[in-house]
Amino acid sequence: MNPFTYVRATETSGAIRALGRDSHFLAGGTNLIDLMKMGIVTPEKLVDITHLPLKHISRTPTGLSIGALCTNSEVADHPLVLKHYPLLSMAFNAGASPQLRNMATVGGNMMQRTRCPYFFDTALPCNKRVPGSGCGALQGYNRMHAIFGASDQCIAVNPSDMSIALTALEATVHIQGARGGRILPFADFHRLPGDTPEKDNVLEPGELITSLTLPLPAFPDHVHYLKIRDRTSYAFALVSVAAALQLDGGNVRAVRLVMGGVAHKPWRLEAAEDFLRGKPATVENFRQAAYLAMQGAKAYAYNQFKLTLAPNAIVQALKTASGVTA
């Protein structure tokens, strides 16, 4: 790692003030320290924010508030989350390893960089790491890469499982900056690469994620997080699907479908949701929804399989979530 100064912040405004040029907030460190070891991020200063009072998990009149510094496992194991938002627990437990989940925070998970191998190797071209250097993946080994929303500048995917579930749960992000706070829908937090793939999200310099709120109801009875990967655990998604259904008899009253491993941000499957809403929960309808979800998908040399795996995964997630097998 490059040498850097380390300061420990004890209150939020102080942390924001302490953040200077080429500085980073340090929370769980599971991504940042790795990036620093690889020479991808070389900060002059780290501001340790783990002592900030942003570790609550508490009821609000409309749902649940989660402090940004809660660890992944604290959230995944929390009784209120397990009861009302089991989809989120499932997504957390599908990510990384128990040890990493004990370190990684919710805010840090949102800030997690892509796992694209070209991003991770400073000897290779990557527009996300060095704007203008080219996209190594576009003509390269792009097996893990996007099929939705990519640009010629970047075809990387967001690796977070948590974010897929939070998008499905229509969470809200609370952000604090030097000049005040702002709130935005979780779905608007991450962005597509476009011509500025170096920006993963809409966070401005000096801003700090302070908490998330999760609304109710989140129809917890019919949910599933399906993650398909190259080994059974401790691997990033080839594709993943968060499915949450509200069933009324045999009909779909409400549905949320979000896919991971396919885009630069959590990919909400609105066309599929629209199709399913009000229709009988049948495998045939799930298939049709998956077909609609895949419109506009574009694959590259090594990820053609995602055009088949993704709709299959949507169907399977819906089957498991609904309990409908025919």
Partner: peptide, 13 residues
């Protein structure tokens, strides 16, 4: 990656 002659998954992740 044969364009660079380099392993691109040279880690345990």
């Amino acid at each position: 990656d044969d364009r660079f002659g380099k392993y691109i998954n040279g880690n345990l992740a």
